[in-house]
Design a protein around this nucleic acid. Structure first.
Length: 358
DNA sequence: CCGCATGATTGCTT
DNA sequence: AAGCAATCATGCGG
């Protein structure tokens, strides 16, 4: 912040002072204001500069405060340190500026700098994609979007403020130059150069805003969308369903894509969550079969009961059938004994241990 | 507060 | 590309 102010002051100040001094020295002031006029004009420029700078600093501080409080006060340190970096970065490279492009791209991708309405959904989609799967966490999601909207609004108002300040400042300087042009010739190139300097300085301030906004979005994202942080145990019902499937397919606990989808629907979780669950379950079961024995028996009994019910229902439904119903299984709950499919091409040697364990 | 349970992530293998 | 193994980070009961 200090560095930036100094830069703006020195850069703009040197040039303005130079012109002012030149003008004052080379030619006498147009109106009869005595020698004090030259000094007065310098004073004017200095005042304006100071004014503009304080405005800019204030607004930047405000923006930062808002962005920080919007995410969390804890993160203010990272925000400010990041800004410090951005100041240094902003001073290098003028014309193409890859960093600015990166920031712009990110803001656009996050839906911050994009169109006002569609931005939210774009950000949501990006966020969902980043978090691994198409997860629709209803409550957290809307919360996230609300926060993102706040950030977007702050960003836009601040951006507008800077643009306005930039224009005002430019107009001021132009007016001053025009005034001076009555006393000495000022080439268009000189004016152009001045405007360029001003714009560059203001765009570096904008860059800070963008950097801060990016930071805020990243923090928001990591806090709301990192599923690991927001881990919640599945519902009792969901684990029941998953366990039932697992223990009734103990010889081959690898649900197909369709089976995963169905389980996901039943448990109201995502398919990738089902995959995670089975991955974890397989490895943990294999690691310590003994520990899971009780659970296995429990679910075996449970599925056996449901199977018995199913059989009973079937028998009741069509009594014409022969009484011997030899467990011709499609999904039937085969509790304790398994036919061990032992496919010749066992890709995963752990299937062996699953089969043996039963 | 500690330790275990558990869902998610990461890196590697096949 | 799917799964394993290790690991992380949180949830939860004692």
């Amino acid at each position: 912040m200090d560095e930036q102010s100094r830069m703006l002051q020195t850069l703009a100040g040197v040039n303005l002072a130079g012109h002012s001094v030149q003008g004052g020295m080379a030619l006498p002031p147009p109106h009869g204001h005595e020698g004090a006029d030259g000094d007065g004009r310098k004073q004017d420029i200095g005042d304006i500069l100071h004014q503009i700078m304080t405005i800019t600093d204030q607004s930047l501080d405000e923006a930062q405060a808002k962005l920080v409080s919007n995410t969390d006060c804890i993160f203010s340190c990272s925000l400010f340190s990041a800004q410090g970096l951005s100041i240094r970065g902003a001073q290098e490279e003028d014309p193409p500026d890859p960093q600015l492009m990166r920031l712009d791209n990110m803001l656009l991708a996050e839906g911050v700098s994009g169109p006002e309405k569609g931005g939210g959904s774009a950000a949501a989609a990006a966020a969902a994609a980043a978090s691994g799967g198409s997860s629709d966490n209803s409550i957290e999601h809307s919360d996230y979007r609300a926060k993102l909207t706040q950030i977007r609004q702050i960003y836009h108002t601040e951006l507008e403020k800077y643009e306005q300040a930039c224009n005002e400042f430019t107009t001021h300087v132009m007016n001053l130059l025009r005034e001076q042009s009555r006393t000495r010739p000022i080439s268009p190139k000189e004016i152009e150069r001045m405007v360029g300097i001003i714009h560059r300085k203001f765009s570096s301030i904008q860059m800070q805003l963008k950097q801060s906004t990016c930071e805020a979005v990243m923090i928001l994202r990591s806090r709301f969308l990192d599923a690991r942080r927001k881990r919640r145990n599945f519902s009792k019902q969901a684990t029941e369903i998953l366990n039932e499937y697992f223990y009734s397919h103990l010889s081959n606990p690898y649900p197909s894509e369709e089976a995963k989808e169905e389980l996901a629907k039943k448990c109201s979780i995502t398919v990738s969550q089902v995959s995670n669950w089975f991955g974890n379950k397989r490895i943990r079961y294999k690691k310590n079969i003994g520990k899971f024995q009780e659970e296995a028996n429990l679910y075996a009994a449970k599925t056996a009961v449901t199977a018995a019910h199913a059989v009973a229902a079937a028998v009741q439904n069509n009594q014409t059938n022969s009484p011997t119903t030899p467990n011709s299984g499609t999904y039937p709950a085969r509790a304790n004994y398994q036919p061990f499919p032992f496919e010749g091409d066992i890709k995963h040697r752990f299937k062996m241990s699953f089969s043996q364990s039963v």
